[in-house]
Design a protein around this nucleic acid. Structure first.
Lengths: 113, 113
DNA sequence: TCGATAATTCCAGAATTATGGAATTAATGC
DNA sequence: GCATTAATTCCATAATTCTGGAATTATCGA
């Protein structure tokens, strides 16, 4: 993932409603949710939800598929994963001991504190 | 890390100049950089850089320390790591096979597609 | 075709964030 | 005290993002 794409994804997730929407979609699993279900859970006016969904769509963090009158939205897990990979690389500057479960130390000092 | 803190960190990183500043600090390692060095590298007016640094400070993604007339800024690696952990949990909904080097699939379907 | 439902786009006002010059604070050396 | 350097805050303008009502598009069933 390049920096421009990462910025787009970070911007998409940096708003309360959009992060909440994305979390709902992740919890919903591969089935995703219809826009209507999402709207009920988040309790947002239709136009507002669409605007936020468009932010997530631009960042390619979600994908959708029309099913009749309903549009089903799914979290794009690989894209989210790519964002985490980007942040991990930028957090650790290439150190190998880095990740969510380790303390993040740059490689330039061999991991000492 | 709670959602409010994550939102603050995501917002801080979702701007070109701030992400660039943070990357410079990560690459600089534990020594960090003075505000002046950062200013030269990013080529920003002083007031603009300060405004962006304040965003990173509020999110506790950087910490600083005055050394005489100079203020030294360092990346706060644990905070960045906590953000990555938060995103990993929210990306994967608790699945164990998740991380920057694996495909991110929620746990609700056992990893099948 | 018509009516109902789902979701979107359009658009304008409100709110927030970004930008950077000028003034200010902080520290140092003479 | 005074000049110098480093960085900040102050403040006003510019730019962007957010919000949501109203109109529009898309699909379906009768």
């Amino acid at each position: 993932m390049d920096t421009e794409t990462a910025l787009s994804a970070l911007a998409a997730l940096s708003h309360e409603s959009r992060l909440a929407a994305f979390r709902e979609l992740v919890q919903a699993g591969p089935e995703g949710l219809s826009v209507g279900e999402l709207r009920e859970r988040l309790d947002l006016p239709p136009a507002t939800l669409t605007a936020h969904l468009n932010g997530l769509r631009t960042a390619e963090l979600v994908q959708d598929q029309r099913e009749g009158r309903v549009i089903r939205v799914r979290a794009n897990y690989p894209q989210m994963n790519a964002l985490i990979a980007y942040l991990t690389e930028n957090c650790c500057a290439g150190a190998t001991n880095c990740g969510p479960n380790s303390v993040c130390i740059p490689s330039t000092n061999g991991g000492q504190t």
